[in-house]
Design a protein around this nucleic acid. Structure first.
Lengths: 227, 227
DNA sequence: ACCTGAACACCGTTCAAGT
DNA sequence: ACCTGAACACCGTTCAAGT
């Protein structure tokens, strides 16, 4: 036969299955190839970016599964319900691929599919009346819960310095809320303590959010024990 | 000379420095050895557990740094202040070793030094009047924020099935609050929906904690904009 | 005891060669 | 175009050998 039926999609599918069954360490070029009944070197034809592209592809596959799960999910009139259901869908998918958080943490670049997930949450919050700053902080808190990490949206790597006008337009099209958020925060000198993705401030904000909520639950438990 | 001055401590120190400078991928037996001016095979004498022991040792070094930072930190009369300062110290140390969360996520067993950190937070919360159940949920929420993960305390691996009476006694001594929490939750049939570390319930609890807190912040912002 | 050199089975990747 | 075999520089690890 002229072709083996090998394709980028089949290779990534095999990589995900291998990671699910034997962990990320088992995902080697030779291992994935063997699962497809093929030589390791054959993979390079379908993954010009080499193993980096394989690993990025694993992230893309999981991100696509999350997006598929989000598709048949109705938007409610309560932003909390909406964000909550998005997080639950994402978590449900990630539970089936427990290697994902570790993989995400080890990758240099964040994949577009992951950015799109954050963009959706951001949109739901802003529609619900949240400011971009509040939504930004929520992203960090929720991201670390669901995916085990949160990308620094403002870091130099996120928006490459050589970003062309075309690239910016494309970003505004696929990530409208992230784009708007960046614009809003760049032009908002209201709170100089926050500044440019001040991650320490973000961290303390989320920490206090949790501590305040826990104290409120503690007081409620106290009250119900001593009526 | 009869000895090279090589020791477990010096090997781990070199491993941490290498990880800090070039990332976790650079931490190879040969790489660490080269940094010490020695052959890779020499390391095995000081790390009988091989590379696994090296990686566990990196975790231990960072955990020790956090414990050192916690030592000169006064306990306040507000549990939130106490927990907050513990989290900030831990985060401060982890920022200097950004490879730690990924490493923790990839390790099978959780190190005693990490358990001790959780035990300290647990103790502060219980002293402040929190129930063990609430403190348990807080641990998951805070753990994923600071270390990027939270161990399943009740999983079979955590308390090995062949745990001897001696081992249990040692655990009760070094991890008094975790031991008490496990005991309390095992003998508390009050809430059958939670059960044995029901991680889905834990997740939804934390999620709602965040969403409720965000909604409260949103309403506060709204009120301040329209006085 | 502490350290080493040679060797083995792996890994990612290149390159020239097959069809 | 799609796939392969041989080869290279790495990796963790073993083992027999040095001191």
């Amino acid at each position: 036969m002229v072709s083996n039926g090998l394709s980028r999609g089949r290779v990534l599918e095999a990589g995900v299955a291998l990671a699910d069954e034997q962990g990320l360490a088992a995902v080697t070029m030779r291992g994935v190839a063997a699962r497809l009944g093929v030589e390791a070197m054959s993979l390079y034809h379908h993954l010009p970016g080499k193993k980096d592209e394989l690993l990025d592809g694993l992230v893309d596959v999981v991100a696509a599964q999350i997006h598929a799960g989000l598709a048949d999910r109705p938007d409610g009139d309560d932003w909390r319900f909406d964000v909550r259901s998005r997080c639950l869908v994402a978590r449900d998918v990630v539970l089936g691929h427990p290697w994902l958080p570790g993989l995400l943490g080890s990758r240099a670049q964040i994949r577009p599919g992951i950015y799109q997930l954050y963009d959706g949450v951001l949109g739901a919050m802003v529609r619900g009346g949240c400011t971009y700053r509040l939504a930004h902080r929520a992203m960090h808190a929720l991201g670390s819960m669901v995916l085990g990490f949160t990308p620094e949206l403002f870091s130099p790597e996120a928006g490459d310095e050589d970003a062309s006008a075309d690239a910016l337009e494309a970003m505004a099209r696929t990530l409208p809320h992230i784009t708007a958020m960046v614009a809003a925060e760049l032009h908002d000198p209201a709170d100089p303590t926050l500044g440019w993705c001040d991650s320490q401030t973000e961290f303390e904000f989320t920490l206090d959010l949790l501590l305040d909520g826990l104290e409120r639950r503690r007081l409620a438990e106290d009250a119900s024990l001593r009526p």
